[in-house]
Every structure is written in structure tokens, then in C-alpha cells.
Nucleic acid binder design. Structure first.
Lengths: 113, 113
DNA sequence: AATTATAACGCAACTAAGTTGCAATAATAC
DNA sequence: GTATTATTGCAACTTAGTTGCGTTATAATT
């Protein structure tokens, strides 16, 4: 599963992962594995504007390190999510406690247009 | 329904709207109305990181006009979404065709913390 | 190696959000 | 008053994600 995600270089949904892996792995198992990888910080989860969860490798120690909070691009044509190397910047009053940041731009990606 | 959203001043989910309206309106009807208002540009739709859709009034002609793409704050405690007056800035190559922008910060809002 | 404990998996059932077809009701036009 | 059109309610359905539980596989212990 991790190799599939690594090969794709993009964020994938459970369905897409299952299709790529090919062999019969149960849906529930995939979700359990994905969730535990997210907890361990190996994957990060993006919820797109289609309401679905997408999972992508966290690349902490890679050459092109992604900024902690970065934009994502969801292509409605090829149904993939790409991590953009664009940091998300905002400043909020101290009275807000930020837990997660989820920024998704949707449209047609460079490969599809 | 619009008055409920106006009164709340926040984005609400179908469930929350139904609860506020009180009287028995069907779920399907609410969704149909919300969707048509979105098409007409009266409401805008935010998909939060809980995968749910939230609806908020578009305030084009209001005093504090919101920037076209603005951040949203979802409070996991009171389960509301607030439109923040913070514009979303990014620049993308022309090869991308942007259709929608969905930025949600989650955590605990100023009223709940 | 045999047994025990523990973790991973598959299956089915379930939940929740959202949509859709269709019949019934309400509103508008003629 | 009747015909036309738009709204609504109901139920069924779809899809995503989760969970309980029994089973299989893996690891540990003697």
C-alpha cells in the first residue's frame, strides 16, 4: 500500500488504492491500515470537497520537504489529489485553537487540461 | 431556512438547519432547496474535514464583504463553521484550471475555548 | 515442536450523508 | 373550474467509512 502511494506520488482514496493494489484486500482492512499510518505520522489525510478522504505520504525527510500546511489540488478529471508546494498562511487570534488545516483547490490539473 | 442561516451568521449543516427550523421539513427537501440556492449564488457550500457539507449565506452586498475565497473555521466543539475574513492566496500555473477553493481550519473556536 | 498469546484480517452489518424516482399536494395559469 | 407546473414527502438507494466478531496468521514461551 505504501509503495502504491509512493509510486503514485499523489494522494489517493481508499477505492483508488484498492484498485491499484489489485489483489483482494478487504475495504475495512485498508481503512484500518490507513488510519493507523495516519496516527503514526506516515500518511496524512486530506478531505476533499467531494467529502472523501485521500491519503498521501508524509515526506518529512525528503529533499523537497512539503511545508507543514500546504495546498492540495484535486483534479475532477483524473480524480487524484496532488500536494502543492504552496504553504498555507493565515493568522488567527489566540482564542482559536487550531487542530487541523485542510485546503483543497479543485479543478483540472496540468496533466488533464 | 435563509433566516435561520442569517440569524446564525455561520455555516450550518443540513442537520443543524433542520433542527433549528423545528417544524417537520423533509431532509430531501432541505437538500434540494440548499442546492438550488447554491446554484443561484445565494448560498455557498463548504465541505469540512468531517466530510460534511455546510451552507452559508453569500454576502456580496453586505458591509463586510467577504473575499471571494476565504478561510473557514470549523469548531469541533460546537459543530459550526465560521467564515473568517481571511483571504486565501495562492498562485498556480496557467495549466491548472481552478474551479473551487475549499479551505477549512478546524479546532476550537473563540467562543468554546 | 507444541502450545499459548497477540496481532492482523475478512466478513457482514451498521451508520450517516446525500441523492433520486415517484406519487401526492400545492400553487399558478388559462 | 380545469389544466399545467412546481414543491414536497416518502421511501429506497448509493457511497464512504466504521465496528463487532470470529477466523487466520504471526510471534512468543516453555
Amino acid at each position: 500500500m505504501l509503495s502504491v502511494l509512493s509510486e503514485a506520488g499523489k494522494a489517493m482514496s481508499q477505492g483508488a488504492i484498492q484498485k491499484k493494489v489489485g489483489i483482494g484486500i478487504n475495504r475495512a482492512t485498508i481503512y484500518r491500515v490507513l488510519n493507523s499510518y495516519c496516527e503514526d505520522g506516515i500518511l496524512h489525510r486530506i478531505v476533499a470537497d467531494d467529502g472523501k478522504q485521500y491519503f498521501a505520504l508524509c515526506m518529512k525527510c525528503e529533499k523537497e520537504e512539503q511545508p507543514k500546511h500546504h495546498f492540495h489540488f484535486r483534479c475532477t478529471s483524473c480524480d487524484t489529489i496532488e500536494c502543492l508546494p504552496i504553504p498555507v498562511n493565515f493568522s488567527l487570534s489566540d482564542h482559536y485553537k487550531v487542530e487541523t488545516v485542510n485546503c483543497v483547490i479543485s479543478g483540472t490539473c496540468k496533466d488533464c487540461s
